[in-house]
């Protein structure tokens, strides 16, 4: 039969494709590292991590690649975004998983799934066109595209992810825990607070970490919403510039193969390492839970 003869071929193909993910991740790392590598020994790392002087095309002598402002920008947007997203996300997950009736549960889940699907450029557009004029009305705020704007947008983007992963984590807690607590006279809120949170804490942690990963890597939304000013923010409403936005906006101008081009790849490598670490760790946490609860 024809099939018998083609079977080894198909098996080979399946094996080959099975490896595609490893192949892709390796290729990504190799390629971006290869582009970054020539500058790695030459780059002044002290300046890179501790200076605010980001001046790739200098008027005078030497270009300066002080990425402190970008690092601080990325982390301030991420942290503020998570401060908004985590409470909302966890609360929403608890409500959906423990309090909501089946109909509300279903419709909320659908809406949150749709939220997750809105592309980042649309979020950026919302930040730039809708949110910015609103923020500008606050007293003492001069620039509408700023840290707060970016953080709110990031929060809205991260929340659906946090909700769905935490909801999974809460659902993974066996019902016997709930029943046991209820038999002891605990109210729902007490069950959530005393039983579910401790039991699902790893999953919830993983959810928050994935949120952080998403926030660190987000590009188009922060490019449009944060104002892109290289500095250390002193107020919630100061504009900031993130690592991702720097790559997106400066890659086009950077001379191919030049130092600036390579430093942008260095930032890319950093982003790659940070997000991979976050994702793999949270994945291990989640897998650990699955194993524990069967």
């Amino acid at each position: 039969m024809l099939l018998d003869r083609t079977e080894p071929l198909i098996h080979a193909l399946i094996f080959f494709c099975g490896w595609s993910a490893i192949f892709c991740v390796t290729a990504i790392f190799v390629f971006i590292f290869k582009e970054a590598a020539p500058i790695v020994p030459r780059l002044d790392w002290g300046t890179f991590f501790f200076s605010l002087d980001w001046n790739p095309v200098p008027g005078g002598e030497e270009p300066a690649y002080g990425a402190l402002g970008l690092l601080v920008g990325t982390f301030s947007v991420t942290i503020l975004g998570m401060l908004i997203a985590v409470p909302i996300g966890l609360s929403a997950a608890v409500y959906i998983s423990e309090f909501a009736g089946p109909k509300i549960k279903e419709s909320f889940k659908i809406i949150i799934e749709l939220l997750a699907a809105i592309p980042s450029i649309v979020w950026g557009f919302i930040g730039l066109v809708v949110l910015s004029p609103i923020i500008q009305k606050l007293p003492g705020v001069y620039v509408g595209t700023n840290l707060l704007n970016g953080a709110i947008i990031i929060a809205f983007m991260a929340v659906p992810l946090i909700v769905s992963i935490s909801e999974d984590a809460l659902r993974a807690v066996p019902d016997s825990y709930r029943e046991g607590a209820m038999a002891l006279g605990a109210r729902k809120w007490e069950i959530v607070y005393r039983v579910l949170f401790p039991a699902a804490k790893n999953g919830l942690l993983a959810a928050c970490m994935l949120g952080v990963g998403r926030a660190v890597g987000e590009t188009m939304a922060v490019l449009l919403a944060t104002g892109n000013a290289n500095n250390i923010p002193h107020a919630l409403t100061d504009p900031v510039k993130t690592m991702t936005a720097t790559i997106a906006s400066e890659f086009g101008d950077a001379e191919f193969g030049g130092d600036h081009y390579r430093v942008l790849f260095v930032i890319g490598v950093l982003l790659f390492i940070i997000t991979c670490a976050i994702n793999v760790t949270s994945d291990i946490i989640v897998k650990g839970i699955r194993k524990k609860h069967g």
Partner: peptide, 8 residues
Amino acid sequence: KTGMVTQS
């Protein structure tokens, strides 16, 4: 060095 709002 700092505080300039840059636009692409």
